[in-house]
């Protein structure tokens, strides 16, 4: 500031820029490059013997196993069994969860009675209850669906009543001031207001459903991705094991994508 030109006006120097940043963007190209790079490195490691085939089979071997699975037609049998359990369990769990969560969100009696119960049961790993479910619902489909249903029920309940608690009170008061019926307020103001929270709960419960699916299928299931992985594990067929895990990962991605679409559609007003 002391530098001055001849006529006495200060030279001036640009104000240093210190804003910006803290705004990570996802660049579409990075993820595929990283993924392909990792798989290529893995393949290279396996071929040069850097990674022993006993520890980890090469991706190409896993892909071979996948092709075998596909050509034998077993893939569809495993997938159909898994998807059926997953969809029934997740759908019923979510539906019941939304209903119970709405009741906790709306009624004092339900809130005082059920909220502590939900808090008490939510942290129990549902896998620990699997033997009980087998006694209650039989060793067939019943116990597997019940495990998934229970696992997805509780997070949905919590997401739903949390969402209802956060609905703007001003909007509810507006509904009352225009003489809307109680049912209308619930249907047109409270539930749409809680929908963002319910959908993000669905995202979490879908991941939990897949985790529980595999756990449930590891006990007494003939078909199912979990059974396939268990079988591969006990035969030390690591290539098949990797294939099974990749199928699960794809399943999870597809679910997340579907819920993302649902969010885009239902929450387009945001």
């Amino acid at each position: 500031m002391s530098d001055k030109v001849a006529d006495g006006t200060p030279m001036g120097k640009p104000v240093p820029f210190r804003g910006g940043g803290f705004l990570p963007r996802s660049r579409k190209i990075v993820a595929p490059i990283l993924f392909i790079g990792l798989v290529a490195f893995w393949e290279w490691g396996a071929r040069t013997g850097f990674i022993s085939p006993l520890i980890l089979p090469a991706p190409s071997e896993a892909f071979e196993a996948f092709k075998n699975l596909l050509s034998s037609g077993l893939l569809w049998q495993h997938l159909a069994a898994s998807l059926q359990r997953l969809l029934i369990g997740w759908f019923c769990g979510t539906l019941l969860g939304v209903i119970v969560g709405t009741m906790i969100g709306l009624f004092s009696v339900a809130r005082s009675g059920l909220q502590p119960l939900v808090s008490a049961i939510f942290p129990i790993p549902k896998i620990a209850l699997l033997p009980l479910f087998i006694i209650w619902f039989g060793i067939g489909e019943g116990s597997k669906v019940a495990t998934i249903l229970f696992g997805t029920f509780f997070p949905t309940v919590i997401a739903t009543y949390g969402g209802i608690d956060n609905v703007d009170r001003g909007l509810i008061r507006m509904g009352q001031s225009f003489g809307l019926s109680r049912m209308s307020i619930i249907r047109k103001i409270i539930l749409p207001g809680a929908l963002p929270a319910i959908l993000s709960g669905a995202r979490i419960s879908a991941a939990i459903a897949i985790i529980l699916l595999v756990a449930a299928e590891m006990i007494a299931a003939e078909f199912g991705v979990g059974a396939y992985i268990l079988m591969a594990g006990s035969l030390m067929a690591t290539d098949q094991l990797i294939t099974g895990v990749a199928i699960l990962s794809c399943l999870g991605l597809i679910f997340a994508w579907l819920i993302g679409r649902a969010e885009k559609y239902f929450l387009k007003w945001r």
């Binding site: 001003g170 507006m174 047109k188 103001i189 749409p192 207001g193 929908l195 929450l267 007003w269 945001r270």
Partner: peptide, 10 residues
């Protein structure tokens, strides 16, 4: 109302 109280999804 002061804060308009419009439903954002409508």
């Amino acid at each position: 109302f002061q804060d308009f109280a419009l439903l954002p999804w409508r």
